[in-house]
């Protein structure tokens, strides 16, 4: 576990240092770095919620399990983070 953390921190620090320097041009050498900079953190806590994206599907589930609906309604889809 310790070494995994060390690796994660090292990679994170390395990535941060790479992006902290002058704005890199888009080249085959920087492609992976720029691509990775745009990837979301799959472990974000809101992702642990079993969101439905259809209100009718959610109503069916809620009626079945007899629980209320919690509706996160935004301008732009919330799961799109817009």
């Amino acid at each position: 576990m310790k070494s995994t953390w060390k690796l994660t921190i090292t990679c994170g620090l390395f990535g941060t240092l790479l992006l902290a320097g002058p704005d890199p041009a888009l080249t085959p050498a920087t492609f992976k770095q720029l691509y990775q900079a745009c990837q979301t953190d799959g472990s974000a806590s809101w992702r642990s919620v079993p969101w439905e994206i259809s209100l009718l599907d959610a109503q069916k589930k809620a009626a079945t399990v007899r629980k209320p609906l919690f509706i996160w309604a935004m301008d732009g889809h919330p799961l799109g983070c817009t």
Partner: peptide
């Protein structure tokens, strides 16, 4: 949704649904 108490209550006691209300 980073708040543990909120996560716990919506996961255990509700059916959570995320929508773009501009549709509905």
């Amino acid at each position: 949704f980073a708040d543990p108490a909120i996560l716990q209550v919506i996961k255990s006691r509700t059916v959570p649904v995320a929508i773009d209300q501009a549709y509905q």
